[in-house]
């Protein structure tokens, strides 16, 4: 069975749990004592990922690291609809790649702020918060204009893609890093839409969606 090296409070691990739940793929969690045990930095774990970070998957001997790479693999391997990672549409695929790279930016800013505020990681907190706001402003404007064109998702499709799942957790948990979303109304509406995707599962800190305004 597919194995996920996982830490409950990790946003990048949660992205995998979220996609696997939506695709209804059974998997086995291998818990990693990320905090306070620092198991991901241990010698034993270096054999699994020499970079010393999680998530990592082991799919019947095929080992893959890095959150967004794993999303690409899981969607390509386990989504028969081909929608979550739309390889048949070059422009849409380009957009997905663009926003996956953007999500690396929110990992380095919004996630970093959260690790600083929750677990006491040593980051320049003002710098990472400022960086997160810069990215959130861009994403909020993008989603605002997309809504004007009747497009509810990050990429120009009628359905969500892995780009939505890659961006969602850092946005929805940003307050835990002291990053207010009060100025980003389109972000709020979009996070509610993500929460209503069939098969959606939360993680600690994420509340269920508010009731939909239309039936």
């Amino acid at each position: 069975m597919l194995k996920l090296y996982d830490y409950e409070l990790s946003v990048n691990c949660y992205k995998q749990r979220l996609l696997l739940g939506i695709l209804d793929v059974p998997y086995e969690v291998i818990p990693v004592d990320f905090f306070p045990g620092w198991e991901h930095k241990s010698e034993a774990f270096a054999a699994i990922n020499p970079l010393g970070h999680i998530p990592v998957i082991d799919d019947d001997g095929y080992v893959l690291r890095d959150a967004h790479a794993i999303l690409v693999y899981l969607a390509s391997r386990y989504d028969p609809s081909g929608r979550w990672y739309p390889t048949s549409d070059p422009q849409l695929l380009g957009e997905v790649a663009q926003w996956l790279l953007f999500a690396e930016g929110t990992t380095n800013t919004a996630s970093a702020a959260r690790l600083h505020d929750n677990l006491g990681y040593d980051f320049d907190i003002e710098a990472v918060r400022t960086g997160a706001h810069r990215l959130f402003r861009v994403l909020d404007e993008h989603l605002w204009f997309a809504e004007r064109q009747q497009r509810p998702w990050v990429c120009a499709a009628s359905h969500p893609t892995i780009a939505d799942l890659a961006l969602f957790p850092d946005v929805v948990l940003s307050e835990e890093g002291g990053i207010s979303r009060i100025d980003y109304p389109a972000l709020r509406r979009w996070t509610d839409r993500v929460k209503r995707i069939p098969g959606f599962s939360p993680m600690p800190g994420i509340f269920p969606a508010t009731p939909a305004s239309t039936g």
Binding site: P31, N118, P204
Partner: peptide, 15 residues
């Protein structure tokens, strides 16, 4: 690891 994971899940929900 399992004991810590359960406790942090609970505490993460409270936070």
């Amino acid at each position: 690891t399992q004991l810590r994971r359960f406790q942090q899940l609970i505490f993460g929900q409270d936070k």
